[in-house]
Simulated assay, not measured.
Amino acid sequence: MDFKRNHVISAIFIILGTLASQATSRALSESSIAEKHEQWMAKHGRIYDDSAEKERRFAIFRKNVEFVEKFNKEGNKTYKLSINKFSDMTNEEFMRHHTGYKMSTSSNTSTSFKSNYFQYQSLAATDIPTSMDWREQQAVTGIKDQGRCGACWAFTVVAAVEGLTKIKTGKLISLSEQQLVDCTQQNNGCSGGSLESAYEYVIQNRGIAREDTYQYQSTDMGTCDANKESEHAAQITGYEQVPSRSENDLLKAVSMQPVSVSIAAYGTEFQHYGSGVFSGDCGTHVDHAVTAIGYGTTEDGTPYWLLKNSWGEQWGESGYMRILRNSDAPEGMCGLAMNAFYPTA
């Protein structure tokens, strides 16, 4: 009887010890993440209105940290995730404030848009470089940040016009996104817009101002500044659409100039993309716009697109993203081959 009693007591102590150890581990983990959150707040200058908001944001931050760490520990993907300045936001909040692409709903009758014409169609495979990075040709300005404004559509149109201007004139000029946000009447500023309407505005206005003339404010200013609007640093005569659902045609276009593309940016993996060739689950409901500025193949043979984003340098590969090229789906990874446009001089 004493032996049985002692055995039961020992078992109880083992269980209590295990529970205590687990509780201590959880407490240490909670403390570690809380310290990480404080460091993250200091790094990104984040200040919350009150303790209740801080507690709510900490819970979201902790969930995102656990997601990122679990993903990276699995180590079986072509890309890594990282904690970034968006890590105290739910994916729904993130999408609401940092995307902004909208499909055009109006039929375009402008003579500057040729929907059935693709000037690079006749390019032979031998004419297309095996890799391209328009940064190496000094045709890409630095990474910009749209902030909490759904103006991605303005950033990609500006980036494409900047690239074409450099190719045609030899001058790389940073152009004004704020002008498009304020002055493109058919779009909705920070509430989103289409690429077609933005290109139409640049054409009809006979150009676009410099960034330093009409500076970005990360908000709708309410009115178009006519004085700044009239200062034309770069012009285009038209724009064209890459044939939809054809990565091969998109390759031809990007080999010749930077191209505006729409993309599905949904999901915590996209929000926390850190490095490598992204091949995650993002769907094809395009809601964001970026600029395809190149392509290539990794050393292990993975083909990728090189994208310039507008979420600042603290996201992705210093603001850029590599994403899988030649995916099984005709619309491309995250739908990037569905709606692509480029300006013409």
Rank of each mutant, 00 (worst) to 15 (best):
F3A: 14
H7N: 11
H7W: 14
V8K: 07
A11E: 04
L16A: 11
L16M: 10
A20R: 07
A20H: 09
A23E: 12
T24V: 15
S25V: 13
S25H: 14
K36E: 07
H37K: 11
Q39L: 12
W40F: 07
H44D: 06
Y48M: 03
Y48L: 03
D49K: 13
D50P: 02
A52S: 12
A52D: 13
K63T: 05
F67G: 05
F67T: 02
E69A: 13
F71R: 04
E74M: 14
L81P: 06
L81K: 01
S82W: 10
K85M: 10
E92F: 14
E93A: 08
E93S: 15
R96M: 09
H98K: 13
T99K: 01
T109Y: 13
Y117F: 15
S122G: 06
A124N: 15
A125N: 15
T126E: 15
I128G: 07
S131H: 14
T141C: 05
T141G: 03
I143R: 05
K144V: 11
D145H: 06
D145P: 00
G147S: 13
R148T: 09
C149F: 09
A154K: 00
A159Y: 05
G163P: 13
L164N: 02
T165D: 04
T165Q: 08
K166S: 11
I167W: 01
I167D: 00
I167Q: 00
G170Q: 06
L172I: 06
L172V: 08
S176H: 11
L180E: 03
L180I: 04
L180Y: 01
V181R: 02
D182A: 07
Q185N: 11
Q185C: 08
N187T: 06
N188S: 10
G192D: 05
L195H: 02
E200L: 13
Y201H: 04
V202W: 01
Y216M: 08
S218F: 08
T219G: 06
M221E: 07
E231S: 14
H232K: 14
A233M: 04
T237F: 03
E240R: 05
Q241Y: 04
R245E: 14
N248S: 15
N248D: 14
A253F: 03
A253D: 00
V254N: 00
S255C: 10
S255V: 12
Q257D: 03
P258H: 03
I263V: 15
A265E: 06
Y266W: 12
Q271S: 09
V277P: 00
S279H: 09
D281S: 15
C282Q: 04
H285V: 14
H285E: 15
V286R: 00
A289H: 08
A292L: 12
G294T: 10
N309M: 12
S310N: 07
G312A: 09
E313D: 11
N326M: 09
S327F: 07
P330S: 12
E331M: 11
A337H: 06
A340Y: 06
F341K: 03
